[in-house]
Design a binder for these strands. Structure first.
Length: 569
RNA sequence: UGGGGCGUCGCCAAGCGGUAAGGCACGGGUCUUUGGAAUCCGCAUGCGCAGGUUCGAAUCCUGCCGCCCCAGCCA
């Protein structure tokens, strides 16, 4: 019904709000304008991806604009390295800020001017209380605060002091600029919040030009106004800051209307949590620093860099974001939903290949020693345009160890003594003999094939239920495979406050398989491409790990396995 | 009575006074040379609880209960 905006089917409180804004023309001539405001002090994760795509899709759906703006107001924590990685991640996700890449620090001068107007209007003052004193004067959750003895300094003195702060006349931490609001407010954020502090520290962009830096609560709403952000979306924990956000916006409109493009408004939504992982910056950092993972881009990490290296596609993440939806209720989304989105995309885009992760040798005794036959197989079932390939078949092949059972249950449709199974794209074989080593381990299966059962020209009339994958021993290429699983064994590693979350680390989160035999076509695979290793999982040709010439494939996500379910019963 | 939020199926989530969408998960059938995919069917007499208003309540009112966030010169 609102196809004009491409939002049909999307029903959440933010879209409703924007439709209403549009219907009532509250935006005036302004387009719907959102932004993503990361602080460059760490890596982005899937939770950020939700926020990025939410903001970006709103702009896209309502034909508006989307800005990328770094919230770089704390030089002590921020670094160029993170700016770079964040830009790379957001670009990869596909959120396009066009030519609107901004930095909060771009506006330091106009912010300083705004702060001066605040002082002149009697709305802000320089406070000489030290950090501890400010805390004491703030009061508690249940008791009102006390007014600072510096609260009623003259405008002249405040202006002079503020200028002195800018000029570097005072040491770090000696004074602050505070908004004069209400020390008795039930909302702690309104008890004369600090809006500027002295920090003699080099900034990654402005160098030593400034030694005073604005605080988030002052900086953010004003930056939004300067950029004409109509809908400033943030997570729920900022709800308490909204009155202050509005206070700053009101003062900006009142005191520096010439630079205010729009009277921005803040709207909060619940941030994303996901099962089987952790999302807090602190915990992710511990995983890296304590070497539970190989780095921020370890394929088990929920970071964008980790998901990328795992082989997850941006399209799958976007699909996930849209399916998760947005609300104000605290939520933890099942990892299974993300996995579903990944499978759904790869099902139609990832070419099939055969590889045997846990091989056992099969000798086809009635097949000539030196004969090789080529079997034609589809790259993408049901999609002719993806073409076909030739797979060599010969006397000795590998099959998956778990595809053979000596004493199978009734529902087992794979290979077992005296039973037949189809080799995908080739022939039906029958197991005649099991060869063991001295310890009783199966080391070889001796089978016979039925010449009438060649795939595509089967004249045997046999109805074979089981189909398994295989690789010709003689023609096999060798690859390395990383079998990734969830980093944690439990849905919520943070549930038990008594126990450290690292105690739930999954010891099997990475199983490395060296020398995995794969069909020769794997040699033509390009780093960065994705495949389905038939009947097993989707894999990503990891360009970073494969740097030394040995191809490495990361398991992105397993195929659904209904046999595993039957087996459990 | 510090302030601010949230409670609809196992997990997300629509719903905005007219008689509980959808997705994931789960269970079952069909089909299948991937036990994949596809496809069909099932899955909340009830929306935290208790009252009330109304012809009619998940939606309005009242009172409870539970959970989350806030006392950085972090964002």
């Amino acid at each position: 019904m609102t196809d004009k905006n491409g939002t049909e089917g999307k029903s959440n409180f933010i879209y409703s709000m924007i439709r209403e804004d549009l219907a009532k023309s509250t935006l005036g001539d302004n387009p719907v304008h959102t932004r993503f405001p990361p602080e460059p002090n760490g890596y982005l994760h899937i939770g950020h991806a939700k926020a990025i795509l939410l903001n970006y899709f709103i702009a896209r759906d309502f034909h508006g604009k989307f800005n990328l703006r770094f919230d770089d107001t704390n030089p002590i924590k921020e670094e160029q390295e993170f700016v770079d990685s964040i830009i790379e991640d957001i670009r990869w996700l596909g959120a396009d800020w066009e030519d609107r890449l901004f930095f909060s620090s771009d506006y330091f001068e106009v912010k300083y001017q705004f702060a001066c107007r605040l002082i002149e209007a009697g709305r802000a003052y320089i406070c000489d209380l030290n950090q501890e004193e400010i805390k004491e004067y703030r009061g508690t959750l249940t008791e009102p605060g006390t007014e600072s003895p510096y609260r009623n300094r003259s405008v002249e003195e405040n202006l002079e002091l503020f200028e002195g702060m800018r000029k570097g006349e005072f040491p770090t931490g000696s004074r602050v600029l505070r908004a004069k609001i209400d020390m008795a407010s039930g909302n702690l954020n309104m008890r004369d919040p600090v809006i500027y502090r002295i920090l003699h520290a080099d900034h990654h962009r402005t160098g030593d030009k400034w030694c005073i830096y604005p605080m988030y609560d002052f900086d953010h709403p004003f930056s939004d106004c300067l950029e004409g952000i109509t809908h400033s979306l943030c997570s729920i924990e900022y709800s308490d800051h909204r009155p202050l956000y509005d206070w700053i916006v009101d003062r900006a409109v009142e005191l520096v209307p010439e630079v205010v493009k729009y009277r921005s408004r803040q709207t909060e939504f619940a941030r994303l949590n996901m099962t089987h992982t952790v999302m807090s910056k602190r915990k992710l950092r511990r995983l890296v620093e304590e070497k539970y993972v190989s780095g921020w881009d370890d394929p088990r990490m929920p970071t964008i860099a980790g998901l990328r290296r795992r082989g997850v596609t941006p399209q799958a993440i976007a699909d996930f974001q849209e399916r998760v939806g947005v609300s104000r209720a605290e939520s933890t989304v099942d990892l299974a939903l993300l996995e579903h989105c990944i499978r759904q995309e790869l099902e139609n885009t990832a070419p099939r290949l055969m590889a045997v992760l846990d091989p056992v040798r099969v000798v086809i005794t009635n097949w000539p020693e030196d004969k090789t036959e080529m079997c034609e197989m589809e790259n993408l079932p049901g999609n002719d345009s993806a073409g076909k390939r030739e797979v060599p078949f010969s006397r000795e092949i590998y099959i998956e160890r778990e595809d053979f059972m000596e004493d199978p249950p009734k529902k087992f449709h794979r290979l077992s003594p005296g039973k037949e199974v189809r080799l995908k794209g080739a022939y039906v074989i029958c197991c005649e003999e099991v060869i063991r080593d001295n310890e009783g381990n199966i080391i070889e299966l001796r089978c016979t094939y039925d010449p009438l059962t060649r795939s595509g020209s089967d004249t045997s009339g046999k109805k074979i239920k089981g189909v398994i994958h295989w690789v010709s021993v003689q023609h096999a290429a060798t690859i390395k495979v990383n079998l990734y699983d969830t980093l944690f064994t439990v849905e919520n590693p943070e549930e038990d406050s008594e126990q450290d979350f690292t105690s739930h680390i999954n010891p099997q989160s990475l199983i490395v398989c060296e020398n995995v035999p794969a069909e020769p076509a794997v040699a033509e695979a390009k780093p960065g491409s994705r495949f389905q290793f038939l009947r097993k999982a989707y894999f990503y040709f990891d360009p970073k790990a494969s740097a030394d010439g040995q191809p490495v494939f990361n398991r992105i996500v397993q195929l659904k396995d209904s046999w595993a379910k039957i087996k459990k019963k």
